[in-house]
Design a protein around this nucleic acid. Structure first.
Lengths: 223, 223
DNA sequence: CCAGTTCTGTGCGGCGGCGTACATAGGAAG
DNA sequence: CTTCCTATGTACGCCGCCGCACAGAACTGG
């Protein structure tokens, strides 16, 4: 995302950032609490979740190296609207909130980038919300695997069924059944927290249309 | 929302708008198509929905006289991320997109207002998405009735069960059962498309916590 | 090699909602 | 008043997922 800035600005901006490690499972921001900083993942994935009283969190968005956590800071609100958790360990550039705000003030390009990404996240939320409501576990799982692959995940440390059950908001054994079916069909193979995609076209056929639809929309809007 | 601007700016802005009638059921914008304009309801309610291929639309947000349709225009993207439908007939001020953009450029207060509302919508989407997934029909229906009451609806023209089934993404007969239960408990009464709230505290107790939670969050962020 | 832990496979009863169908009731129009 | 249409009440079987429980399998550390 920073790379999309003009070279000089990008350099300058990166200079304002610290590099941090993203540890799987760590929480980067809490709903309705101030952002500690804005995160630009260079590797790994951040998960945007919504938590209801007494329920496991439900994942509604994924942020990878093409995105950022804290795009809402471009709206002038310093508080996070959602909770975000590191789903896939990696690393990120972090910029503190005051520095980001100063930079947003000076760089229209940066502001535009954040605004656009905010829009993208919104599209993602809308799609995922409906998908979660209407579609079944297996297609949703397939879609999720495709999404993470798109985000450039190579080897996953902790994609256990237990873990996936949280991101999909379903039972662990429900995931086992869905994953088992995908494996039997030869689309994926997995064992003890490690999933490989064997047949991407097959997986695409097993996924709900949301993956394709969302990508189409991105392209339509941003070219 | 316009009223929150300084008096002079508000007047000026209102002068740029046309007044239009909001007809129940009419679509104000389509997902991934350019906004025709930005709508500031003065009466009635606009519903933000997400539609999946071959499914009824699912409502994820409500826009009343405290809000607007087209807040994403403040992000510099001229396309709508979602579909919006008039749910409750009324009226609105409309401003054309180029005029709005010019005004956003000149008035930081206006820009801030749109940004804040964009943030609010985001909070609403996140809450509603999880609510839709986890909560049952009856509490969701109760919550929805409370929300619409908060938006200042007095008499509803077309709150039939059929209609409600679309906003909640469930069967019509599912709504009948839920509404029947709320009526038997004395919280509401209805007949042929007309619902009255008889016992607001009772209805609150029947609703899921999402209504309260969201209001709390609004207050926490915006005071 | 053994013991403990984590991950996966599988089964059970139950429930909420689905799709469908049909019956009644209330208004509107003639 | 009758006719038609829309809105509501209710029932039936089905399915997906739940909560739970337990067994096997695969790694881990002694």
């Amino acid at each position: 995302m920073i790379a999309s800035l003009p070279r000089r600005e990008g350099r300058r901006f990166a200079g304002l950032c610290d590099s941090v490690e993203l540890k799987a499972g760590s929480t980067l921001c809490e709903s309705n609490e101030p952002f500690q900083g804005a995160y630009f993942p260079t590797a790994g994935v951040i998960s945007v979740v919504s938590t209801l009283h007494g329920r496991p969190p439900l994942e509604l968005g994924l942020i990878g190296r093409d995105g950022m956590l804290g795009a809402t800071l471009s709206l002038g609100v310093l508080v996070a609207p959602m909770q975000a958790v590191v789903q896939e360990a990696g690393s990120a550039l972090v910029i503190k909130v005051p520095e980001l705000r100063a930079e947003l003030h000076d760089s229209p390009r940066l502001l535009e980038a954040l605004h656009r990404y905010q829009f993208r996240l919104m599209m993602q939320l809308l799609q995922t919300a409906a998908c979660t409501h209407f579609h079944e576990i297996e297609p949703r799982l397939a879609r999720w695997l495709l999404m993470t692959q798109d985000l450039g995940i190579t080897d996953s440390v902790h994609f256990t069924h237990e873990f996936l059950s949280h991101t999909l908001g379903v039972r662990r054994s429900g995931v086992t059944v869905a994953a088992g079916s995908l494996q039997r069909r030869g689309f994926i193979s997995y064992s003890r927290g490690h999933i490989r995609i064997l047949d991407r076209p097959g997986l695409e056929s097993a996924a709900c249309e949301c993956h394709q639809a969302l990508n189409d929309k991105y392209r339509l809007v941003f070219g």
